[in-house]
Design a protein around this nucleic acid. Structure first.
Length: 578
RNA sequence: GGGCUCGUGGUGUAGCGGCCAAGCACGCCGGCCUGUCAAGCCGGAGAUCGGGGGUCCGAAUCCCCUCGAGCCCGCCA
């Protein structure tokens, strides 16, 4: 008899014989009758073993949770007063006629109804997946990747793979390195991203490329960061920003519809980087709620609030948030917690309907007639500090006031980032990456005033999460060389690191651009998950270990022997000053 | 690299200087039970409290070191 998935039982007529394969969830043993709940990938259903089947009964009594079984029998409606309305398939049960134990399961290593720590769950990840939302997250993620593949293929993109074992490119994230046995002292780097390869594919006339690319970065991890992660990497030739926006907007519409059945609106709003910082205090604004940052600098220029007055007269700014509710004690706590440790300070004031100041330093605000009914939170100082600070307070308040809804999806394009920013040591570094096209026609402008140059780059932000970013690329070798020089690379360094790429740009590179979407983060939002780990089948812990396999591990002796010459060579190179 | 928190039977936790060679719940083992819903009832086994050192008459409990985990900052072109 063919197998039936439990999820399709609702379509099966009563008294029909079916075969179910799956895992035992619970066994309820009453001596002369046994119930057990069977689970497969698609759902659960109760199975009934009654008195007439003596042998079956003995076997059923001996079942343990997560035993793997095959049951055949008839689908029956439950007696009317035995229907369980709280249970999936609670109105039916399978009356078992045969029962086969396919594999016994030892007592599970932890209580699957409890909440064990992360490491225990990762160590027994198969149990965790079987018993948690992760199983369905993997399904949603699979639908997501299929939808994206179909969409891009339909739009004439080719899926092309690029190497994971590649060349170390300094300046970016730390790379994982792989020693090469055949060439002691030489190493591959695991690709941080397919950036250079995808540009070279454009030069190769592939024209439209995509890939689900695994990327590797040896940096410290966070709840939303893994050492290896997946990007939907996209690149196209002879295009502009508008083509990318349209392509991705169409993709998101399809993606949300196919995966979670949500209709999202396109086109998405756009905002410059400056506007995002000014209004939301963030380069990834959460547009699920309004509450923008306002400028109150002029209101305090001549106020009797001396602290703020002084800041303004010294050239600083006063910015603030306003909302129409009075400030309660819990909101106060939220603000204090968000501010603690940041070194930034804020002042708040509330005004009630009858014009009375009800909270905050009332004396200082007594004569400020422009205050409306509601609550203000102000911060004063340098714009560079005040805006991100208020951006954080805004999010904390949004969360506290219940304005961040999980079933709302607000996209925004953030554009026109500065091309360069100043690193800690005072040098210039690329804000996006050094292959981004600057928004100028004259190469000399890049040299004369780099900080004013804007990048033709764009980020796609969803609910305050950066889910992707890209740019129009430089396709001219001279311009690319000029940018490398601004970044402080010498001609010999440029040649050594990027010579091959400059050669490629010189050999018929078309204008091109692209984007990379963080597929794990997108999946996380689609699944409503709180951590990347919930949408990755085999994630690593904070310190980069895999409790399931025990990776990373020391080498076996024979492997170590092969590596000794490699490390000897490194030591020699060091001595020679290489 | 810096800051904070945690680590007690298989799992989750209580205990925070003597009343604890450690209590409870789930799980496990044995028994009873013909309609349960994470079934119920009766009985039983199982941890020297992450590891090491110290203080003290006495340490799961205090101190130091160490290992592991988590969160945040730095970092992630």
């Amino acid at each position: 008899m063919d197998r039936t998935y439990i999820g399709s039982l609702k379509n099966v007529s009563k008294d029909v014989n079916v075969r179910l394969d799956g895992w035992v969830q619970y066994v309820r043993d009453f001596g002369k009758v046994v119930f057990f709940v069977l689970k497969d990938r698609t759902g659960i259903v109760q199975c009934y073993v009654g008195a007439p089947h003596e042998e079956l009964l003995e076997l059923a009594k001996s079942l343990s949770p997560d035993d793997v079984v095959r049951v055949e029998g008839k689908i029956k409606p439950r007696p009317a007063d035995m229907v369980n309305k709280n249970m999936e398939n609670g109105d039916i049960e399978l009356e078992a006629e045969t029962l086969e134990l396919l594999n016994h399961c030892i007592p599970l290593p932890y209580d699957v109804n409890g909440d064990p720590n992360e490491v225990t769950k990762l160590k027994y990840r198969y149990v965790d997946i079987r018993h948690s939302d992760t199983l369905d997250n993997l399904r949603v993620r699979s639908v997501a990747s299929t939808t994206i593949r179909n969409y891009l293929t339909k739009n004439d993109f080719w899926e092309v793979e690029t190497p994971y074992l590649t060349k170390y490119t300094p300046g970016g994230a730390r790379n994982f390195v792989v020693p090469v046995r055949q060439q002691p002292g030489y190493f591959y780097a695991l690709a941080e991203s397919p950036q250079i390869f995808k540009q070279i594919l454009m030069i190769s006339s592939v024209d439209r490329y995509f890939q689900f690319a695994r990327c590797f970065r040896d940096e410290d991890l966070r709840a939303d960061r893994q050492p290896e992660f997946t990007q939907v990497d996209i690149e196209a030739s002879f295009i502009t920003e508008e083509d990318i926006y349209k392509l991705i907007e169409g993709m998101m519409v399809e993606l949300f519809k196919e995966t979670i059945g949500v209709e999202i609106k396109a086109p998405f709003p756009r905002m410059t980087y400056d506007e995002a910082m000014e209004k939301y205090g963030s380069d990834k604004p959460d547009l699920r709620f309004e509450m923008i940052i306002n400028d109150y600098t002029e209101n305090f220029r001549e106020s009797n609030f001396n602290a703020f007055k002084q800041v303004v007269q010294e050239g600083g700014v006063v910015r603030g948030l306003y909302w129409s509710d009075p400030l309660d004690r819990s909101a106060m706590k939220v603000l204090e917690q968000a501010a603690s440790g940041s070194g930034n300070r804020f002042v708040f004031v509330s005004k009630s309907l009858d014009g009375m100041l009800t909270n905050g330093p009332k004396a200082v605000f007594q004569n400020e007639d422009w205050l409306k009914e509601g609550t203000y939170v102000f911060s004063a100082g340098n714009e560079d500090k005040v805006l991100p600070f208020l951006g954080e307070l805004r999010l904390a308040l949004g969360e506290h006031l219940g304005l961040l809804h999980n079933n709302e999806y607000e996209f925004v394009w953030v554009t026109s980032r500065p091309m360069f920013e100043i690193a800690d040591d005072g040098s210039l570094q690329a804000a996006h990456h050094p292959f981004t096209m600057p928004d100028v026609t004259d190469i000399n402008e890049i040299k004369s005033n780099p900080l004013m140059v804007r990048a033709r780059a764009y980020d796609i932000v969803l609910n305050g999460v950066e889910v992707g970013g890209g740019s129009i690329r430089i396709h001219n070798a001279d311009l690319q060389r000029a940018v490398f020089r601004v970044l402080g690379l010498s001609d010999s360094e440029i040649e050594e690191r990027f010579g091959f790429f400059l050669d490629a740009l010189s050999c018929g590179a078309p204008p091109h651009g692209g984007i990379a979407l963080g597929f794990d983060r997108l999946s996380m939002i689609l699944c409503g998950a709180e951590s990347l780990r919930e949408v990755i089948a085999f994630p690593k812990t904070k310190s980069g270990t895999c409790p399931l396999t025990g990776a990373p591990a020391k080498l076996f002796t024979n492997q170590s022997k092969e590596l000794i010459p490699i490390f000897k060579q490194i030591i020699n190179d060091e001595r020679e000053g290489g």
